[in-house]
Computed example of a mutant assay.
Amino acid sequence: MDHKQLKYFLALADTLHFSRASERCYISPPTLSRQIKQLEEEVGAPLFIRDNRSVALTPQGQAFIQYAQATLASWRQFKSECLDEDKPLSGELSLFCSVTASYSFIYDLFARYRQDFPQVELNLLTGDPANSIAQVQGEVVDVAVAVRPRNLPQGLEYLSIGRSRLLFIAPTMKCPLSDLLAQHRGELPWHQVPFIVPEHGVLKERLDVFFKKKALQPKIYAHVSGHEAMVALTSLGFGVAYVPEVVLEQSPFRNQVQTLGLQSEEIEIGLVCKRKRLQDPVVSALFRVAARLFAA
């Protein structure tokens, strides 16, 4: 088996979806299916159970995850030890972030990194920022942009690259929700307010604290994956949301929402990777570039 097949396997094991995994790996779904089938033939056991509607890991597939991760980690370590210091840095680096982060933080970082190390291949994956740390822990990517949690898991390295206020937002369009808010300029009737909340992650934890302080059993309109989608649903009048200011600034719907005059708190945003991955010159170089760029 080759290392690309192991990467394809881990992508499919993470997404459990052939189309999403093939997009992540920059190959077609039929090619991914053939590669997985070849891998299963070499392993001698099925790694996935698949039908027309779903994909699931077999017990052998679940066990194979650790082997694939360890093999790729050992290969990356070996390659880094073989690098000739007199030659330009080369290799691959994958990074996971939200769509907003790709505009607000990562564009400048990648531009500077590419200028300094043009022979390194950069791969960018976007998705729900609540999944950032899990993507790193599962070794789906080398580095991720993540909101710093209250307790950073052991074995991870974190480099702050910015901060953002958290804001309660509401629609500006005329709708039952905006009418309700207009009638209560003081303390809002929170028990009547529908909320659009993230499925999980730091922002959900912050909201849970807010609800607890208010002794509120919230009226939830929707659980949403991704901060950008929360702004969109809010602009349509479906509920109030709690989002980072940096997301609101980049949103095409920023003029269709209003901020509520409530005391706000901040989140810290940074790069996260497994500490052992800093032994890879490609990864450590990214952290050095980021430290210089965002300290300025």
Rank of each mutant, 00 (worst) to 15 (best):
V140I: 13
P252R: 09
M1G: 10
R292D: 15
M173Q: 15
G237K: 04
S90Y: 11
S264Q: 12
L95G: 00
P29R: 06
T126G: 07
R254S: 13
Q137S: 10
V246R: 10
Q263H: 11
A229C: 03
R76I: 00
I161M: 10
G186I: 05
L177A: 05
P153R: 08
Y103Q: 13
Y103H: 15
R275G: 14
K276T: 11
D84S: 13
K219C: 13
A146P: 00
Q258A: 15
D280A: 03
A130F: 04
P29G: 05
T100F: 01
V193W: 02
V257C: 06
E187L: 11
L156N: 06
F110S: 14
G162M: 06
T71A: 15
L260G: 05
G201I: 05
N255E: 14
K274S: 12
V143S: 06
R292T: 08
V246P: 00
S19Q: 12
K212T: 14
V247N: 09
R34D: 10
L262V: 12
G239E: 07
R148S: 10
D208H: 04
E245V: 02
Y158L: 11
K7M: 10
T259P: 02
Y8E: 07
V272Q: 02
I169C: 05
E199M: 11
R20H: 10
V43E: 08
L6K: 00
D280N: 14
R288Q: 15
D142Y: 03
G270W: 00
D86G: 10
L57Q: 03
E23G: 04
Q60M: 15
L293C: 04
D128Y: 07
M1S: 11
V257P: 02
F238E: 07
K174D: 15
E187N: 12
V120L: 06
D116H: 10
Q5K: 14
D84N: 15
V99A: 14
L109Q: 04
L89T: 02
F96G: 00
R206Y: 08
Q69F: 05
S54Y: 13
I161T: 08
A144D: 01
R53Q: 14
P118G: 05
A21I: 01
P198Y: 02
N123I: 14
V257R: 03
Q137G: 08
T31W: 11
C25T: 01
D84I: 03
L180C: 08
Q137Y: 02
A215D: 13
L180R: 06
G261K: 09
L159R: 04
A101V: 03
S284N: 15
L57E: 03
A45N: 13
Q38H: 13
V120C: 04
V145T: 02
E266Y: 10
L39H: 07
E121K: 12
E42K: 13
L262K: 09
